[in-house]
Write a protein that binds this DNA or RNA. Structure first.
Length: 263
DNA sequence: ATTGAGACCTGTCGGC
DNA sequence: TGCCGACAGGTCTCAA
């Protein structure tokens, strides 16, 4: 998409979790997509108009790319065969069709005026990128200072660290050997200095995400082998740990952990 | 101000 | 086989 122009934008449903912004297609058509970026779980497309197209896949969203839709198209506006959950189709000047599909419609599409990104509710208070230079044990401890909620809930809070979801929050806690039940404030000493667990947890978050990205880019990669997620009742994979993975609910989300090696 | 529960919407899976 | 409830990788709103 980068460098291409939005030749035609087809909106097949008026909104996802929220309605699309006014004149959505009109504000995109004719603009060039200058660059694509990501912040947390948000995909950001910078437009030649100065606006930014902000997208989120929610829980069930996906983007399908047909690189040569222009040539193979047989009269259908959507390019290739349309699914009933294909909500938006971007037809690019390059001939590519980019389709946003989201059965559950928890996704987001928004247009943010020039200079307003930092004030956007989704991005205004978002925390550091876990794989960026600003995130380490010290940053994690600072973000957790004074938080009375559980560590697991804190990791899901996008203001603490950007982009972690329910699976990798459990995975990182297990790799770090830290209990999801622990109070978030215990990452720091009363004076705000990081405790050892904060360094281990920050390192585990980086490790777990890098590993997931590496695996996702392997075409042959099939079933994910998680450390704890969705493994209730199975053996802990930690070396020399004989524990059994347990599952329980924390603020409405499933948490998986090993009671034997996570403290 | 912070926190957890409930809501949003559709699909899938396991149990009966 | 078919029905039904439970559950799902996220985020927002609301009330305590």
């Amino acid at each position: 998409m980068a460098g291409a122009r939005f030749a035609r934008v087809i909106v097949r449903r008026e909104g996802l979790r929220r309605p699309f912004p006014s004149d959505f297609a009109g504000r995109l058509e004719g603009r060039t997509l200058r660059a694509l970026r990501r912040r947390g779980k948000y995909l950001l497309a910078e437009l030649s108009s100065g606006e930014t197209l902000l997208m989120h896949l929610g829980m069930s969203g996906s983007i399908r790319v047909d690189l040569d839709a222009g040539a193979t198209r047989r009269g259908g506006d959507a390019g290739d065969v349309a699914d009933r959950h294909d909500h938006v189709v971007f037809r690019m000047s390059s001939g590519a069709a980019v389709t946003f599909n989201d059965p559950r419609r928890f996704g987001v599409m928004d247009l943010v005026p020039r200079g307003q990104l930092a004030r956007h509710p989704a991005l205004g208070a978002i925390g550091p990128e876990p794989l960026g230079p600003d995130f380490d044990g010290g940053a994690l401890a600072r973000a957790c200072t004074g938080k009375r909620t559980s560590l697991k809930a804190a990791l899901l809070d996008q203001r603490v660290v950007a982009g972690l979801g329910n699976i990798y929050a459990s995975e990182a806690l297990h790799l770090a050997g830290v209990s999801p039940r622990r109070r978030a404030s215990t990452m720091a000493t009363p004076s705000g200095l990081p405790r050892p667990g904060a360094h281990r947890l920050a390192a585990a978050i980086k490790h777990v995400l890098q590993n997931a990205i590496a695996k996702a880019s392997m075409p042959s990669y099939r079933s994910s082998r998680f450390r704890v997620y969705d493994r209730e009742g199975e053996r802990c994979r930690t070396r020399r740990c004989a524990g059994t993975i347990r599952r329980f609910s924390q603020s409405g989300r499933s948490t998986f952990y090993c009671p034997d090696c996570q403290r």
